[in-house]
Computed example of a mutant assay.
Amino acid sequence: MRTKHMKCLAGVTAATATVLGLSAGPTAASGHHEHVVRPGESIQEAVDAAHPGDTVVVLPGTYRESVLITTSGLTLRGTGERTVVAPQAAGTAPADPAAAPPKTTAGAPAPAKGPRALNACAAGGNGICVVGTEKNPVDGVRIRALTVSGFTKSGVWSSRTDGLSVRRVTARDNGTWGIAQEHSTRADIRRNTTTGNGDAGIFVANAVNEEGGATDTGGTTIADNEVSGNRIGVTARRVRNLLIDDNTITGNCSGIFVVGDESKPAAGAMTISGNRIVKNNKLCAATPRLSAIQGSGIVLTGSENTVVRSNVIQDNVGTTDFSGGVLLFKSFVGALNTGNTVSENLVSGNSPADLANRDTAGTGNTFTGNTCATSVPAGMCAE
């Protein structure tokens, strides 16, 4: 199967390979292979044929499928905005994988016709999935330079991964999250664009469908992303030990939302620094778990030992409970904020206040050296 696949790839013209800087065969130094996918071909088939260390290169075009990656060390690389992964067109939904295949008169399965069966990624409504298991996480997968758009759930979804790297990906107009992960460690989510997604542009959680204490992400980094027009820009839910740095976050209902609850360990022990969080004034209606959101810069709920430092937080304006520049708010189950530090931020033009500590029962929270005009309670802005 592998030999046959590589012989097919040898059909890529020398001119195409030269222009794109690609090789259809193994590199001389490493022995790793590049699998080139052209319009009309299947990304999933190339991924299934790949081995750890291989690269799947997806040429410009629109590929109407979902891609499931379960191989460690794999790189999936497109050509930027010209490589688009999108759902199958209406009226051509994949077959139900639980249904029995049609039979020929001899009783053998009939040859496949039409759209291929759902994989687990497509069944979940996601575009690109990287999925391991508790005992065998998928390590070192890299996703590069492509667009994932229009899926009912997430553009890029990962679970049980370590060292996942997502860079220069555009995740737009997906029903829930743009780029999301759970049960994962040491991710690097950098230089992406997430816009118009139904919930968070970037979402990091301990687990989506379970309660439980916050998990240590091992230093997951969310950096240098452009995040706009989502419900929430970046959500960190029941996680610890991560960096949210140097992102531009604008036009969402809320910029950054740290979510904790009464479980132990608590969410927090993270750094939010160097971000530009401006005019997140979209109005989002209440949900069963959360009141309406509008005009929120950074919100900490049930967090401990989080550092909010050297951010520019401006012109976030609204009239909801979460409106304002930087807010401490007890979680929806009553968990308190403890030991958080908000320092050296430029916070201006936010309403009803630049800084607001609405978790007055929380302990050890400090506001120091912030340039701002209004605070609740008064006196938290630097003179």
Rank of each mutant, 00 (worst) to 15 (best):
L146E: 09
K113V: 12
A205C: 05
A28K: 09
F322Y: 15
A335P: 09
R240A: 10
A269F: 13
A200M: 05
V19G: 00
C284P: 07
D224P: 00
S184Y: 03
V258L: 15
T221Y: 00
G349H: 06
A205F: 01
P60I: 03
E34N: 13
G80D: 06
R38K: 14
T363I: 12
N340D: 15
A207P: 02
G127F: 03
R2W: 04
P94Y: 01
F203Q: 11
A356G: 13
D162S: 13
A93V: 08
S66L: 07
V36C: 08
D216W: 04
G212Y: 05
G349N: 09
G318D: 01
T133K: 10
V307A: 15
E344T: 14
R2K: 10
V342D: 06
A99L: 10
A171T: 04
A285H: 07
S159D: 13
S291E: 14
D261S: 13
S375K: 04
A15C: 00
D139I: 00
E344C: 01
R144L: 14
F332E: 15
S351R: 14
S291V: 08
S228I: 06
F203K: 14
T71Q: 10
S323D: 05
I249R: 02
G78S: 07
T363P: 03
V326C: 00
L355P: 07
T194Q: 10
I69M: 10
W177G: 08
K7T: 14
